[in-house]
């Protein structure tokens, strides 16, 4: 066992988890944004709809999706 375990910051893992969730949500938003752009280049996949009004999901929307258990 590491000696540092004796001096652990009790919030270390908790902050680490919040950072991890930030990356996960950030990645999710990026993928969603790229997918929307990809669809906009291929009209037949998009049912011929205009995609200029499509907005990327906000972080709030994403967090709401990942929020309630």
């Amino acid at each position: 066992m590491s000696l540092a375990f004796l001096y652990i910051d009790p919030t270390a893992g908790g902050i680490g988890l919040q950072i991890l969730l930030t990356f996960l949500i950030g990645g999710f938003v990026t993928i969603k944004l790229m997918w929307a752009r990809f669809l906009s280049f291929i009209p037949f996949l998009n049912g011929g709809k205009e995609t200029t009004d499509d907005k990327p999901a906000s972080a709030t929307q994403v967090s709401a999706e990942t929020g309630e258990d």
């Binding site: 902050i15 919040q18 950072i19 969730l21 930030t22 949500i25 972080a59 709030t60 994403v62 967090s63 709401a64 990942t66 929020g67 309630e68 258990d69």
Partner: peptide, 15 residues
């Protein structure tokens, strides 16, 4: 940490 992550964590725990 974005505020949305904290709100999401609070709501996840509440649920």
């Amino acid at each position: 940490i974005p505020k949305e992550v904290i709100v999401g964590t609070l709501k996840r725990l509440r649920g």
